[in-house]
Write a protein that binds this DNA or RNA. Structure first.
Lengths: 345, 345
DNA sequence: CGAAGTCATGTGCACGGTCACAAATTGGCC
DNA sequence: GGCCAATTTGTGACCGTGCACATGACTTCG
């Protein structure tokens, strides 16, 4: 740890300069300074220059708390996030922060990772006590939405995933389309015995991907088996893989994310089989590592960053009361790599 | 997107209830309400109960901006972060947020990911304009520290990595020790021709790991070659691997993180060689996927979450002016898996 | 029983901005 | 030169909370 250069050596704890200090030195009223700060229209250039000079000299910074108090607006948006350490959410959060900052907003994040009971309410409470103007929900689990409804949040909120219902304002990567792409790819290769390793049932996107899988299978009249419900981790994929290999009545598996796909491949190889010779695998997300798995993983790419950006745009429009133009769903993209091939027989 | 239940249907835009509204309904002064909120000592139980009842009834929430303004403290800490989408930083950030929240603090993050020039100053500015009380630097690059010094930040800050110099207050995972563990493991297995794939030179932790590697090699009197400087990505590891295989005068590689190790293994396998038969690989970080790489990766585990927690503890102590007890460096742990073995000959 | 001390509560102002409105200055035009 | 309008600047109140100090009620004790 390196301590900051603590300048407050002098006896009195000097408060930061205020708008009035600037006003005094510039020989104007505090209101004029305020106008310069908010670059109001009718300010004489010479006055403006003088004020700006003093601001520079005093190293003046507007006090956000005071501004928020008097304007009644915090200029802060909240992010409600689960598993924020994972690639997808983390990328989106970063994008959200950048986009918000560009729009002059601040971001405050509350995590849901920990002990469940009351956790959602507590997190929302944390955000609300920041008087956020809007919330981005990045933990699209059913219970979160229920909790949000129950708490009757009185600020607008958007989510990175469709809540399932058709919504005129839906902002989302089209998970169903993505899952269908993956499934179609396997069917087109000639696979007929395809398993689906799904995400946790209460995750909206997991459900959507499962739906997409089932839809495509149905449309192509390929008989389906019940999906296995996982927890997104490579660990689970590995164990699920070991279980599945006892049966071995499949030639391909579509995994609902890349991590579980990795675990699956681990289990398969450990059993002496080979991907894609014996089993084809498709993942979902296209995490940066996926291209270097062995074999490199065929997967469905989502643009998390773009998602985050659009999300902020939509939320801010909502806050402003503007009717947001619905840019429609972002289309995911199938990335074909080495983990899929025609079935062996 | 699902819009929140917008309650503000009524004509007038009702302001949230204030401490005085509560006071009026409870038949006390606003100051009494304030005392209840800050659970001040001398308040009659009956009064307290009455006030609390009104608070509940009115759904009253303290206004953070007003509180910050009047107390002159924002109760917010800032996080300055690069590559916040990666596993290590992301985990630490999550832990920081949780710890801060438990301590009644809010967290604000500024990313450095984007276009470099002025980016650091801008990010710091963003945080300072939030009047954060302290900053956690999670982007331990040399230039960031230089920028921090130049900007003469007047709030305490801590970093997740030692700045290299021995510092009485250093808070860090001992990167050097970790790197030595990894290197020792390879030497103990019998390897003598060991390469090191380092992280970006300007990253303090990358430099520390490189140092640890060189120290251990020196201590064991194993001749060394110049480390290769990478950029943390699997992509780079892959390309570096391909280059290295033109020479093939090594039996083991110590990679400065797991992603680059993954890329290395990809390149090695693609060249028809096998890990660990032909080349042993050690990584660093122990990302959750590492256990399911092929082969499962031998690596050095860091407890990012613990790091984040301690970091907040230290920073808050610093803010409070308390002398922080230095808990010393966190020791990393060598996790031996399948990617290392005795050299073939 | 009165003085001194503790406890419980109230009063008024400060924090650093913004807002609504008023006042001063400027310029154009007859 | 005087009048009106537009431009530029100033005045005072207010946002919601905490702090310092004042006040009144109730104890304690010699």
């Amino acid at each position: 740890m390196t301590s900051g250069v603590t300048v407050s050596d002098d006896s009195t704890k000097e408060r930061a300069p205020s708008i009035r200090d600037v006003a005094r030195l510039a020989g104007v009223s505090h209101q004029t300074v305020s106008r310069v700060l908010n670059n109001h229209a009718s300010i004489r250039d010479s006055t403006k220059a003088r004020v700006l000079a003093v601001i520079e000299e005093l190293q003046y910074r507007p006090n956000r708390a005071a501004r928020a108090l008097s304007r009644g607006r915090s200029r802060t948006i909240g992010v409600l996030s689960a598993s924020s350490a994972e690639y997808g959410p983390a990328s989106s959060i970063a994008a959200i922060q950048d986009a918000a900052r560009d729009a002059g907003y601040f971001v405050n994040t509350a995590n849901l990772n920990r002990g469940e009971p009351g956790s959602i309410a507590a997190a929302v409470d944390h955000l609300m006590s920041q008087s956020v103007e809007g919330i981005v929900v990045i933990a699209p689990q059913v219970q979160v939405f229920n909790a949000l409804k129950l708490l009757s949040i009185d600020v607008p909120f958007v989510t990175l995933q469709s809540s399932g219902n058709v919504d005129a304002n839906a902002l989302t990567v089209d998970q169903i389309a993505g899952a269908r792409l993956a499934t179609r790819h396997l069917i087109d290769l000639g696979h007929r015995d395809i398993y689906h390793l799904a995400g946790p049932q209460d995750w909206i996107e997991a459900e959507a991907r499962m739906h997409g899988f089932l839809e495509e299978m149905g449309a192509r009249e390929v008989p389906t088996t019940a999906p296995i419900l996982g927890d997104w981790t490579a660990q689970f994929g590995y164990h699920a893989g070991r279980e599945l290999l006892h049966v071995r009545d499949f030639t391909a598996i579509f995994s609902s994310n890349d991590q579980m796909a990795l675990g699956l491949m681990h289990a398969i190889r450990e059993a002496g089989l080979e991907v894609p010779r014996d089993v084809s695998i498709v993942g979902f997300d296209d995490i940066p590592e996926a291209a270097h798995f062995w074999p490199p993983l065929t997967t469905v790419r989502q643009d998390f960053a773009e998602l985050g950006r659009r999300c902020v745009a939509l939320l801010l429009a909502n806050i402003a009361g503007t009717t947001a133009e619905n840019q429609g769903a972002i289309m995911p993209e199938l990335i074909v790599r080495g983990s899929t091939a025609r079935p062996a027989f």
